[in-house]
């Protein structure tokens, strides 16, 4: 296979498949049951991985946005757009699985007092606006405004998290501290595998979609040439 993009897809695909299979087998069959939370703790592995990878996606969008503004190369705009979309899907997944966990662990579907759940809701709002802006801006502004907004939104993420946390610590002390802080090694391993699997999946999907955009650009160019005759 001579096309480097195709080779990357192959490598990432194999990697994703192996890591996902290992992770699922490991966390269901090998990892011990959590003494405190029981079975539901098994949600944790992929839930937290997806959450972290969605932040990674937004980080990639941030860097790609800065690169686009510097170079004005359309490829970077593609990276921003695809990363934000993937990150948003993963953030939605995070909130849904988080909500399921909340129901299992604390008996309610939604608790605002969990700062992570609240922050991810804000992040979804923040990045949804990206698509509103993008579909509204036209011409060369579209890519530039999108890039600028991807930068602003990524800077907003830690600020929002901090604001949510501060607001809650005043009204009621944080009850649920980070669940993964003190994990025995037998659990940590499977978490790392799950995280690696999701990271590989993110880059795989990114690569596939970049190739779609490449094809689309080539087709657009052909169309222009045909029109010009």
């Amino acid at each position: 296979m001579t096309d480097p993009a195709a080779r990357r897809v192959l490598v990432l695909g194999v990697l994703t498949a192996v890591l996902t299979a290992t992770g699922i087998i490991g966390l269901f069959l090998v990892a011990p049951e959590d003494s405190g939370e029981g079975q539901i703790q098994r949600i944790f592995y992929f839930h937290v991985s997806i959450a972290l990878v969605s932040l990674l996606a937004f980080g990639v969008a941030f860097v790609a946005g800065a690169m686009y503004l510097r170079s004005q190369r359309e490829w970077w705009d593609d990276v921003v757009f695809i990363s934000v979309r993937l990150g948003l899907v993963l953030a939605v997944l995070t909130v849904i699985t988080g909500s399921i966990w909340a129901k299992a662990a604390w008996g309610t579907w939604w608790i605002w007092s969990d700062p992570r759940l609240a922050t991810y809701t804000l992040v979804i709002l923040l990045y949804s606006a990206y698509f509103v802006l993008r579909s509204s801006a036209e011409g060369s502004r579209q890519a530039r405004f999108s890039a600028v907004y991807a930068i602003i939104a990524f800077v907003s993420v830690p600020i929002s998290f901090y604001a949510v946390r501060v607001a809650q610590s005043v009204v009621h002390p944080v009850v649920f501290t980070s669940s993964g802080a003190a994990m025995p090694h037998s659990m940590l391993i499977w978490f790392v595998v799950a995280l690696a699997a999701m990271t590989a999946l993110f880059f795989l999907l990114l690569q596939v979609e970049l190739m779609q955009h490449r094809a689309q650009r080539a087709l657009r160019e052909v169309k222009l040439r045909l029109e010009r005759g």
């Binding site: 029981g38 079975q39 098994r42 997944l93 849904i96 399921i100």
Partner: peptide, 20 residues
Amino acid sequence: GGTQYVVAAYAVIWVILVLY
């Protein structure tokens, strides 16, 4: 022991990824 919630969570992940 909450197994149904674990299954539900992984089903949601699976479904959304397939939709994507």
